[in-house]
Amino acid sequence: MRVLVVGSNGMLGRDLMSTLVQTEYTVFGLDIPQIDITRQHELSGVVRDLSPALIINCAAYTAVDKAEQETELAFSINRDGSANLATVCHDQGIPLIHISTDYVFDGTGRRPYRESDPASPIGVYGRSKWEGEEGVRDHLREHLIVRTAWLYGVQGNNFVKTILRLSREKERIRVVADQFGCPTWARDLAEGLARMATLISDDPASVQWGTYHFCGQGQTTWHGFAEAIVAEGRRREELKVQQVVPVTTAEYPTPAARPSWSVLDCRKLEENFGIVPRPWQTGLSEMMEELYRGDFPRQ
């Protein structure tokens, strides 16, 4: 099977590429400027030339705070680009796996969100991703939309690397303690996507198309996540930080509002694909081990 990963230079895209190249698939990874999902005509030609049997879309505008000012750009990529890709897939008979986010929910719930729960995004980023989901649904039946949360990895900038950097620089760091979610290692998600691709390849008639959740098993707060990162870091180096101070969202304002509850229910994924995400603590430990081996930059 020929698989095209769109957005292959991002954090998830890189882990997905390294995961897929270990399979029997022929894998192509494209990113800007080789492919631009906001330009449908050019996109159609690129896809036609490669003739993949499956496309996995990791391309997205993910700057949550900047999206409040760069609204047009966020919607152009997350909404229009996703719909363009789904249209091209429909026209060329290609199934699509599309990555989405917990930000489609407003965070007012107090049980894990199910795929069937109504979306109610509270910021530009969340709205643009939700409308992108709808564009995929409107244009392509053979799709899998995979929502994830609190994604981190050895590639790119993310919360884990930020906490490690601050822990080397400061004795006290302040972290929000009233937002709850499920930290997800990009490598774990990549391996889940690879397993979904295998089912599409091996038995496409059995695939239950639709929307799924994938995130690290268990829940914590950003503060709890930060404490775990510091503990993992201390096993590997001497850190300056002495205290991780819990603060409220009100004490740490950001341009874009964050959902206070981003816990996702992943049971549908297990029921239809047999995929059970690992505990988030396990993913964090393995990611830190990989980071400290020196294969990837720490900053």
Rank of each mutant, 00 (worst) to 15 (best):
Q92Y: 13
Q208W: 06
G224M: 04
I122K: 14
N57V: 09
Q217H: 03
R147L: 03
R14Q: 14
I37G: 02
V5M: 09
E289Y: 01
S8I: 05
F273W: 10
L20D: 08
T211Y: 07
V27A: 10
D178R: 04
T254C: 10
W130A: 13
D91E: 14
I173L: 15
S206E: 06
E133D: 14
P52G: 09
A226M: 10
T108D: 11
A149Y: 08
A257M: 08
K129G: 00
N78D: 07
P259T: 03
W280R: 00
D36W: 06
V241G: 07
S128I: 06
L199Y: 01
F273L: 08
L291N: 08
L199D: 01
T62G: 13
G216W: 05
S167G: 11
I173A: 02
T19D: 09
P279G: 02
A231V: 04
S128M: 11
P297M: 12
L73V: 06
I229P: 04
I200M: 04
M196Y: 02
I77D: 03
Y103F: 15
E131F: 12
P33M: 14
R235V: 00
R2I: 03
Y125M: 11
R127Y: 09
W150R: 01
Q92A: 07
I97V: 11
L43K: 05
C89N: 02
S82H: 08
L193P: 00
D202A: 02
I94N: 01
G123D: 15
T23H: 05
F180V: 01
M1Y: 00
Q69H: 14
T221M: 01
S116Q: 07
